[in-house]
Write a protein that binds this DNA or RNA. Structure first.
Lengths: 162, 162
DNA sequence: TCTATTATCTCGGCCAGCAAGATACTTGTT
DNA sequence: AACAAGTATCTTGCTGGCCGAGATAATAGA
C-alpha cells in the first residue's frame, strides 16, 4: 500500500469495503465474546468449541494436542483449557483405544445446543440475506471471501519465512 | 435455525458462504495475532491501536476512558494498557488543555508505519480483488457485509435485553 | 464554598497461558 | 524380551493482563 493510497484510505469504493470487512470481523468477534461471557467462558474456550465442532462435522476425532495446536496453545495451556471445558460440562475426555497416550475430546450435546441457540439467529439472517442474491452476485461474494482467506493465510506464511 | 437446517449445514450454497465468512474472520484474527506477537504485543494492544487510528482518521481525539470503553476494559485495565503502549513507544499520553482530568492518547507515527507494513499487503490484495468486480457485484458484497454487521450488532442488543 | 460528578491512576488479587519437567504409553532396534 | 528414543498429556511454578475497590485530581452546579 503506497503512501498515496493510504492518504485516500476510506474514500474509494474498494477501501470502503475493506474497512467494512474489518468492522464485520470486529463485530462478529464481539458477538462471540458475548456468547463466551454469558456462559462464563473465555474467548479461547469458544474458539476451542468451534474447532472441535468443525472437526466433528468433518467426521474427525480431535486429540488434546491437535486442539492446542489449532489454538496456538502449549501443552500446559491446552490441559488447563480442556480442564475448564470439562468442568463446565461442555466436553468429555476419552482415552483413545488404539494409542492410549491420546485423549480425544468429545463435545457434549448440550454445548452444541447452546451454540445453536446463540449463533442460530445470526446464521438465519445470513442465509436470508444470501437468498436475495442471484448466482453471479453469490459468486462475487464467495470469490471475495475466498480471496481474502487466501491472502490472510498466505501473508502469514510469507512473513513467517515459510 | 431449525434442526433440519443444522443437519444440512455446510451443504447448501448459502451455508457454504456462512462457513466461509467464519473462516475469514478466524484467519484475519490470526493475521492480527501474528502482528501482535511479532511486535511483542497482545491482541488487546492491537485492537487499541486500531480504535485509536480509526478515531484519528475521523479527526477525533480519543481519551483513555473512551479507549477503555471501546475495548470493554475497566479503568485499571485501561491504565495498564496505555502504560504498555506508551512504554513500547506506540502512543503518547497528552493531558487535555480544556479538561485537565482527561488524557488524550496519540498514536506515534512509527506505530502507524509498523501497521502499514504488516497490513498493507493484505489491503492491497483486497483492493486488487475488488477492482475485478463490476458495480452490481460490488453492491452485493457491500450489501452482504453491511447486513452481517447489522445482524451481529443487533443480535447482541436483542439478547442483552435492550 | 461545598458537594457531586467525572477522569484517571494505584493497589491487591484472580486466573489464562508459558516454560520446564514428570509421567505414561508406543515404536524401533537389538 | 529388553532397552532406548520418541510422543501425548499432565503437573508445577511463574508471568502478566484484567478486574474490583478505592484514591487522587479536576470540573460543574447550587
Amino acid at each position: 500500500m503506497s503512501d498515496q493510497e493510504y492518504e485516500e484510505a476510506g474514500q474509494g469504493p474498494e477501501m470502503e469495503i475493506v474497512h467494512l470487512l474489518r468492522a464485520v470481523v470486529v463485530d462478529l468477534g464481539r458477538h462471540s465474546a458475548r456468547f463466551a461471557q454469558r456462559n462464563g467462558m473465555h474467548p479461547t474456550d469458544v474458539r476451542a468449541l468451534i474447532v472441535l465442532m468443525d472437526a466433528a462435522r468433518a467426521g474427525k476425532d480431535t486429540s488434546a494436542g491437535q486442539l492446542g495446536a489449532a489454538l496456538g496453545l502449549n501443552s500446559a495451556g491446552t490441559t488447563a483449557l480442556v480442564d475448564r471445558l470439562e468442568r463446565a460440562g461442555h466436553v468429555r475426555r476419552v482415552r483413545s483405544e488404539r494409542d492410549r497416550r491420546k485423549v480425544t475430546i468429545e463435545v457434549d450435546e448440550r454445548a452444541i445446543a447452546l451454540g445453536l441457540q446463540h449463533f442460530g439467529p445470526l446464521i438465519d439472517r445470513a442465509v436470508g440475506l444470501l437468498r436475495e442474491y442471484d448466482e453471479r452476485e453469490l459468486a462475487a461474494i464467495k470469490g471475495f471471501l475466498t480471496g481474502m482467506q487466501e491472502a490472510a493465510t498466505q501473508e502469514g506464511e510469507r512473513a513467517d519465512g515459510h
